[in-house]
Design a binder for these strands. Structure first.
Lengths: 355, 355
DNA sequence: TTGTACGCGTTATCAC
DNA sequence: GTGATAACGCGTACAA
């Protein structure tokens, strides 16, 4: 959008010797309403000038901006990046352009950004929220703007939601670790209050522990890490090891960032997996699908699949449906997960090998 | 932007008992042009309705969309994600909103996306290109739309450019490896033609090799990998090992994705660093700054710093300057890099330890 | 200090 | 088949 004069529909009309109306009809494919020769005249002029209609004017006139606001909690996380990529295709194909903003896990910033998007007149909102309470968002939804929540949800309101199954993979992981003979399981997490995903995973851990390790206290075995503090993490791992004398403990990491972090800690401590300690967690980043030889694969780390790109794509499609048919009932979509057992938790096999 | 009637400037005017003009003045902070009481009346009404001006109409009227197009080559790469994050702050603070699109390293898609952005009337373009030739982009720049290239450049035209120093870090790396006593250096890269960054790094390797390893052929020692083919990579590593009988070879990886990939391969082959092989490369992802214990740190991998977020921020600021002062001369900005020597290439120290 | 009237580039309605 | 014309919501000469 520049100071230099842009070619408009009137210019085309004048050059083709027709009226704006006819050009507009041409642009919207109403070819049956004009003679073949005017059609081709217009076509030629448009070709020559490579004219493109001003979508701002179209939006103003048509009351639809064809813009979708996307609020993401942490753009640099591979999980979020993959979700965003997943959203792009369906939106662009439907003629919408995403306005992507990054709240950096800051609820206050998130609120401001949502305001910004609203004043830009977006036709809908996909929110991967940093908040757990967000009255503004609820108000917006009530005012009739289609909103889809993505991966994380908010209390006090039933939004359309697309995410992953979080509970059952953790449950199966605990059962698997028990079966392999691990003596103790620690759940290593980032701060999990105010984050529905972490909260559910940690809750699933607590319940599974009660079933498979009846004596253990899930409070004591939940370690809340600061991913920038390496020595703190090492102390937590040491504590877990000390709590399991004569046995081998295992770690369930709450997400991939924590897994990577622990991978570093375990190597720094000179521990061998699974002989000294087990490690497993979600593959939130979808790296299993993308890279054949990520650090998650060698040495193989037991994980369960998450599908961020698919979540994003489904969220976008859900939103598009809401825009097309506003009164359709909304239904949550939860993507299933698959367990991938790898060496980092194959304790029995490793023992047999040594014997 | 919904079917339900939105509150407009006329509504505010009517409610406050003034004209649209006065409200408009209020919105643009021209308080000196109205009496204190009308000002407060307007303020009240706007509060009550939480009215926000329609930015579409503002843009149409003012010939500035306050939108910046961002074309990224690979959104899911941590490097690109960090660049985008860096752009966000300056743009939003200046009142612009980024329209982010992902070309997925596809030049044809890139061209289409740029068209889309132009028809959305963006006020400027930041392009992290997937092409090496792009006449459309050159045409757009010539038509007066401000364009900044980011990290990668295009042939045949002098765009404003923000990127990293690529040549000297590789040179210093080769010198370092020579000094440590590595017998051979292999340059492991993804396809590097049509990618200015990879091309420069590989060229720097060739020149440095000629200086420090006069006999070696840089052609033979350049290995072009497919990051989805693990066995192919392993064969390349084996070839490098075989070419260095009685000595220890080292690998320079062209980027972080390749480094991660090689890390997996080396572990899968059961090799120990630096005893059996050396490994180093750029930290394109800025993980050194972000995570205290990334897999790059344990075991420590020698790397040189790259600053994607800073590149993004500087690119955004450069573009804003171009918008504000169109005729200012454009100057390339190249961010410096720092070498971080870690265990993966400390061959001498490792030998002394063993002795 | 305040208001009127026009134009930004489109599309939809209605008339020819 | 084609074309005036009136919106869409806002900013700004110009007038009062």
């Amino acid at each position: 959008m520049n100071s230099s004069k842009n070619v408009t529909i009137s210019d085309i009309a004048r050059a083709a010797g027709v009226s704006k109306t006819t050009v507009s009809r041409y642009l919207n494919g109403k070819f049956s309403m004009m003679s073949p020769e005017t059609r081709s005249r217009i076509e030629t002029v448009i070709r020559m000038t490579n004219y493109q209609p001003n979508s701002l004017a179209q939006s103003l006139r048509g009351h639809r901006s064809m813009q979708i606001g996307i609020v993401i909690s942490d753009l640099v996380s591979p999980f979020c990046a993959a979700m965003i990529r997943g959203m792009g295709q369906p939106l662009l194909e439907a003629g919408f352009i995403p306005l992507i903003v990054d709240s950096k896990e800051d609820p206050a910033l998130e609120a401001r950004l949502i305001q910004t998007l609203m004043s830009r007149k977006v036709d809908g909102l996909i929110v991967n929220t940093s908040s757990y309470v967000n009255p503004d968002l609820i108000r917006i939804a009530c005012e009739g703007v289609p909103v889809v929540l993505c991966d994380r949800y908010i209390s006090d309101y039933r939004f359309a939601f697309v995410g992953s199954v979080h509970r059952s993979p953790i449950t199966r992981l605990v059962a698997h670790l028990k079966e392999e003979g691990f003596g103790k399981i620690g759940f290593f997490t980032q701060e999990y209050r105010g984050n529905s995903t972490r909260f559910i995973r940690r809750d699933a851990f607590a319940r599974a522990l009660a079933e498979h390790y009846p004596g253990d206290d899930s409070e004591e075995l939940t370690f809340v890490l600061d991913l920038t503090d390496q020595s703190g993490t090492i102390r937590c791992v040491e504590k877990l090891l000390a709590s399991c004398p004569g046995g081998v403990p295992a770690i369930i990491a709450v997400n991939s960032a924590t897994t990577m972090h622990l991978l570093g800690a375990i190597r720094a401590m000179g521990l061998t997996m699974p002989r000294d300690i087990g490690l497993c967690g979600p593959d939130d980043w979808g790296w299993d699908q993308q890279y054949s030889m990520s650090p998650l694969n060698y040495p193989g780390i037991t994980s369960f699949t998450v599908h961020p790109a698919e979540i994003g794509a489904l969220a976008a499609e859900t939103l598009l449906n809401m825009i097309r048919e506003p009164d359709r009932e909304k239904r949550d979509i939860l993507l299933p997960s698959e367990l991938l057992i790898r060496d980092s938790t194959r304790l029995r096999a490793s023992r047999e090998e040594e014997a």
